[in-house]
Simulated scan of single mutants.
Amino acid sequence: MDQHSAAEAGTAPQGYGTDPNLVTPHTPWSRTLSERERALVGALADIVLPGTAEYPAPSAMGIADFFDDWVSAPYTTQQGHRTVITTGLAMVDAEARRQFGTGFVELDGSRQRTIVDQIASTTATDRSFFTRFRSLLLAGYFTSDIGFKAIGYPGNVPLLAFPGAPPEAQRIIDDELRKLGL
Rank of each mutant, 00 (worst) to 15 (best):
T131R: 14
E37T: 08
A161L: 07
R98V: 07
V23A: 12
Q79C: 00
Q79K: 14
T122C: 00
P58M: 03
M91H: 13
R171M: 12
T122Y: 05
W70P: 00
D46L: 07
P50Y: 09
S110N: 04
R127N: 03
T125F: 01
V105Q: 09
T24V: 12
T18C: 01
V105E: 12
I172T: 14
R111W: 02
M61A: 10
T77A: 15
P154F: 11
D117V: 10
G10R: 02
G42M: 03
D126E: 15
T52Q: 03
G140I: 08
F67K: 06
G147Q: 05
A60W: 01
T77R: 09
E168M: 04
F100L: 02
P74S: 07
R98I: 05
T143S: 15
R111V: 01
L136W: 05
G17S: 05
P13Q: 06
F130T: 11
T86K: 07
S121R: 15
D174N: 15
P167R: 13
E37N: 08
L89A: 07
F129C: 11
I119D: 00
A124C: 01
L40N: 05
I85D: 10
A96Q: 08
P158Q: 11
R127W: 05
D93I: 08
L137G: 04
G62Q: 03
I172C: 00
A73P: 00
I47H: 06
P163Q: 15
R113V: 05
D68R: 06
V116H: 06
G101D: 05
V92T: 12
I115Q: 09
T27G: 00
D69R: 14
L33W: 03
A12N: 04
D46E: 08
Q118F: 11
S72F: 10
Q99V: 12
A9D: 03
R178V: 11
F148E: 09
P13F: 02
D68F: 05
A45E: 00
Y55C: 01
G103I: 06
Y16S: 08
V48Q: 08
Q3C: 01
L182K: 10
I85W: 09
I151P: 02
L159K: 10
V23M: 06
L89G: 11
K179S: 10
T18S: 14
P158F: 09
T86Q: 15
R111P: 00
Y75W: 13
G42C: 05
S144T: 11
D174M: 04
T77P: 00
I172M: 11
N21A: 12
L107Q: 05
R171E: 07
T123P: 00
S30H: 14
F133N: 02
A94C: 04
I146G: 04
S144M: 06
